[in-house]
Nucleic acid binder design. Structure first.
Lengths: 189, 189, 189, 189
DNA sequence: AATGAATGAGGATTCATTCAT
DNA sequence: CATGAATGAATCCTCATTCAT
């Protein structure tokens, strides 16, 4: 309260610094010392603002998830029809996500935490829920789930692959996954 | 003790112990001490067999990737036609992968390393290459890439999601992604 | 414990302890553990006060060099003429330096470091510069360099030799090195 | 005995490797492992040929001292008169010793050991004795001791100094130290 | 309210030496 | 005879957290 009023940016700066350090050195390498130095705040200030490391990580990753979900909201909110939504998805993958090594790293760090600790799993769920809500503006719920998974997979593989991923492939994949499968009539003779 | 002097399985046991510890506590929690204890070998033995931690992690994750790729090879090798291959993919996701919290955790840990260190990125690439080769027995290269990404995404989301993933959804998603998209004729009226 | 919480002399005590341990066991034997024990501080305190071993060694040897240079300053500052300065030099070698096995050991340890690492070479240079400045009160620059080298050599050899070094020899050596050489006239009748 | 006959170079190679490693990393950094690797012999071979580290170091430094003393013998043995001997000394300092960073490092490492352990002190004494014997071909014993000290000091300082040492200064210093001091007559009117 | 000082536990790694083979 | 495998002790250093100020 008084403290926040006094240096209201400090918490924010610490959180931003935490994400920077995590992006650069991983959660394993993110110590109080390093984050404090990156943020330009005294070491003792860390445990004053955040009771412990998990609390800081929680807030940092929550912010990270929201920042990416914001982009989903914006891109998909601007689409006016299904084809526009498909295009928005392709753009999200190719323009926003793939260019950012930082986002890839942070995503994996978060997932790794989520795989083990419930607190962080909740963060990923909230993030996924926001993404699906954005997709839900244009697609039915089941398609949303498939599409969300596809985006995830394309994002991950694109970042790990050696060969560049062609936009055409992404366009085709999005088209396929958003197109209901018509089981070929077997009885036709 | 005669047994102490020569122990040809020791390397293997250390690698297995490393994967166990990583699955349980993460790469961050995988210390020489813990792994040595898990493997039942003295601490000094660790850096005798593996020059440093990265070398041990490298071998461990290489083995992990291969063990999963082996299952891909087996399941898809047994399929005789495209529908069989689709079924195999669904089974791989639902029977083999999703049941294993351990595999999920290890996968994320590996990806997190891969996002930062080239050595581990190569491991994931080799693994992905094996998976795609297995898929390539039944699908064209472009479909392989899409399908591989979908599998990845479904696997990751299934493990993080709260609601159970229904097999039917997976079946539909696989069917869609493996079915070429026919752009609807626009001029037909 | 109040005493534990704030201990302003601690850095100094660690430095003094470091020199003691180095004198007794060499730089090679000077571990954080031993120095901490000698200084009566907890092990973790070492790297709090000194980021790493080199930093501690640097400060310790800087202090050592200065302490000896102080004696040079004092002895030579008191001399009022050249003969007094020569006497002061002899006294420095015989009274101050030779009696101290500790100084010999520390000097060699420093030189050994200096021969390999620039940081320590700078320390020896600063030390040498102070010595020469003190000698420069009474002798010309070239003589200073020669005299400084002679002092160095006498100091080292005296400490390594079996036979005792006689003061008379030192007196003669200092007299010679501070007396310009007159090339014998070759053309004389 | 049989072993030596079998691979007679091995001991020599290990000794040479030891000096290389010491020159590069210091006595402190000279481990069995590194020396074995440098020599191209198996680790277990080290303690087979040398009971312990000190034995190896002893032999290595004995060889080093002899190699330098050999140069003294040769240069001074070729001189035919005092002036020739003075010139030889200057050459030894400027041509042979100063150019070799390696010799400087090894000398200091040896002195550091000698300052603490009698075994190594004996090695330096033997070395010094050889040097003085060589000087003794041309100078009286007292002058030998002074000259030897001067050489030592010039060698050390030259290697540590920033500014280059001029040959002329060395020539003058050698001339001075080898010229008896004539106390100026005080009674002269 | 804010923090610099402090510390014990634990991190990876290096090592000389031993000994079964 | 020669050595690869093995190991416990010791190395430096990092760390989250505590607490007197």
């Amino acid at each position: 309260m008084a403290s926040r009023r006094f240096d209201p940016d400090r918490r924010d700066r610490i959180i931003a610094a935490a994400l920077d350090v995590i992006a650069a050195q991983g959660v394993a390498g993110a110590s109080h010392r390093k984050i404090a130095e990156q943020a330009g705040v005294p070491l003792g200030s860390m445990t004053y603002h955040f009771a412990n490391m998990d609390e800081l990580l929680t807030e940092a990753f929550r912010r990270f998830g929201n920042s990416i979900a914001d982009r989903f909201d914006q891109e998909l909110g601007e689409a006016t029809d299904v084809d526009g939504a498909r295009l928005a998805v392709v753009d999200l993958i190719h323009l926003d996500l793939l260019d950012s090594q930082r986002d890839l790293v942070l995503t994996h760090e978060l997932y790794t935490l989520a795989a083990r600790k419930p607190v962080f799993r909740q963060i990923t769920r909230d993030w996924m829920a926001r993404n699906r809500r954005a997709l839900g503006l244009h697609f039915d719920p089941e398609t949303c789930r498939m599409l969300d998974a596809l985006i995830e997979g394309l994002f991950i593989h694109a970042a790990l692959d050696t060969e560049p991923h062609h936009r055409a492939t992404t366009v085709e994949a999005v088209a396929r996954i958003t197109t209901p499968y018509h089981r070929p009539a077997r009885t036709a003779h």
